[in-house]
Amino acid sequence: MQSRKEELLERIRTKIRVTCDMPDLLIDSITFPDRVAQFKVMLQAVGGEAIELVQGENMQELICSRFPESKIIASNLPEISFATINPDQVDDPHELAYIDLAIIRGEIGVAENACIWIPQMMKERVVCFIAEYLVVLLERSALVNNMHEAYEQISFHDKEFGVFISGPSKTADIEQALVIGAHGAKGVLVILT
C-alpha cells in the first residue's frame, strides 16, 4: 500500500503546472566599516549590552561586578570557575529551574542585527533560556556583517540544536508596550574578547 507520504507527494506532482528556477543567492549586502561599533549599537537597540574586555582585565571579576546579586550561576566553560552548577552534569533540565545567571560562549556575532550564533555546546540547552540573566562571551574576530555571512559559516551537524539570540527575551503583546523579560533572560550582556 502507498504510504501517506507517497500519496501526498504524488498529489503534489499531479498539481504542479509551472516550474520556476532557483535564483542566484549572491546578494550584494550591507557591510559595516566598524563591525564592533555596529554590533554594540544594534545590541543596545534590542535591549542588550556589549562591552569589550580590555587587556589585562579579569573576566570573572567583571562578571561578578555586573551581577553582584546572582547566587546560582550556571556554566560549563572552563574559564568560569565561580559557577555553582554545570549544565553538563545535571540529570534533568528541571534542575536548572532557578538559576540567576548563565554564562555561555557564542560562535558568531552578526553586526546587522546583534544576533549571536549559539550551537548547543552543553548537555542541557535550557540554561540559555531559563536564566534570569545571560552573559555571552564572544571573540571580536567572530563578528560578521550580515546573516548571509553568518549562515555561510554555520555547520552544526553533530549538534542537536543551535540558536541565534539577539538581546533579551521581550514582548509587546499588551498594547504594543515593549516589556523586556517575557520568558527568557531579562538581560543579555555580551563580553567581546
Binding site: 534590542v46 544576533c115 550580515n146 546573516m147 540544536f161 543551535g162 540558536v163 539577539s166 527568557g184
Partner: peptide
C-alpha cells in the same frame, strides 16, 4: 530571516531564531 522580523514588527530580527535539528 533578514526579511521576516523587519517586515513583521519592524525589528532587525526576533530575539530567538531557533534551529531544531535532532
Amino acid at each position: 530571516i533578514r526579511l521576516l522580523a523587519r517586515s513583521a514588527t519592524g525589528q532587525p530580527v526576533t530575539a530567538y531564531t531557533s534551529h531544531y535539528r535532532k
